[in-house]
């Protein structure tokens, strides 16, 4: 039996033998949570796969109406935020308290920028009547003057946009939670909670932030980049 008579600190709670053990335990716990998130998003990716193989052409046409360059730009913004997040964790490892705050604030700014661009894109879809529902209509026409998606297949286009809004919406919701988490981390960092000995919340928060980034890494090509080469 290990000696549990140590003084309890943030870095070493009563129930753990060593700081290393406590840290590994936190990491493992977070990963188990992230796996449940993988399965959560996985259901939506499965739905996407089914409908895309059922209506490949409609999905390709509907996808080209999304703003490709802005999507790519936003992907870069999110990747930058992942970089600043990992730099915050690194500052934690080194015990640089001021640097932690600076990197976390930068992450917050990039995350906020991503959400702002997303709101702009959703508004674009709203103006174009691409939000599924009674007023939905995909009226982009080809060079021959005919609807790219005939009236009989408008319903299939609604499925694409339903998936688009559900998947990017769920992703954005995770981003909003992430922004809240960052605000809390910044507040705690300002209060001087973190040091080289104890920065687990930043580390674990980083795992969450990167996970949300990974989801977007898949959403971007699957939603925005389907057969962009097709002639309009």
């Amino acid at each position: 039996m290990a000696d549990h008579a140590h003084t309890e600190t943030l870095a070493l709670r009563m129930q753990f033998d060593t700081e290393e053990q406590q840290k590994d335990c936190s990491t493992l716990g977070m990963w188990v949570f992230l796996i449940t998130e993988v399965m959560f998003f996985g259901g939506m990716f499965a739905a996407y796969t089914i409908y895309r193989q059922l209506y490949p052409h409609v999905f390709a046409v509907a996808s080209t109406s999304l703003n490709g360059p802005i999507g790519a730009f936003n992907t870069c913004v999110l990747l930058l935020s992942s970089f600043t997040m990992v730099m915050a964790v690194r500052s934690g490892q080194l015990g640089k308290r001021k640097a932690i705050i600076v990197w976390l604030i930068l992450t917050l700014i990039f995350g906020g920028a991503f959400l702002g661009v997303k709101a702009y894109e959703w508004n674009e879809k709203y103006v174009e009547h691409h939000i599924p529902g009674a007023s939905f209509h995909f009226d982009e026409k080809g060079s021959d003057g005919k609807l790219l998606i005939p009236e009989s297949e408008q319903g299939h286009a609604q499925i694409f946009f339903s998936l688009y809004f559900a998947m990017t919406g769920l992703h954005a919701m995770h981003m909003v939670v992430g922004v809240g988490m960052l605000l809390w981390l910044i507040w705690a960092a300002k209060a001087g909670t973190y040091s080289a000995k104890y920065f687990t919340p930043i580390d674990i928060g980083g795992l969450y932030w990167h996970f949300v980034d990974v989801i977007w890494i898949f959403l971007f090509p699957l939603l925005y980049l389907i057969d962009r080469h097709l002639p309009k």
Partner: peptide, 15 residues
């Protein structure tokens, strides 16, 4: 490409 990016993020950024 997406899987490569995921692997890089997981291995390095997520330690």
């Amino acid at each position: 490409i997406a899987c490569t990016k995921m692997t890089l993020v997981a291995l390095f950024f997520m330690h």
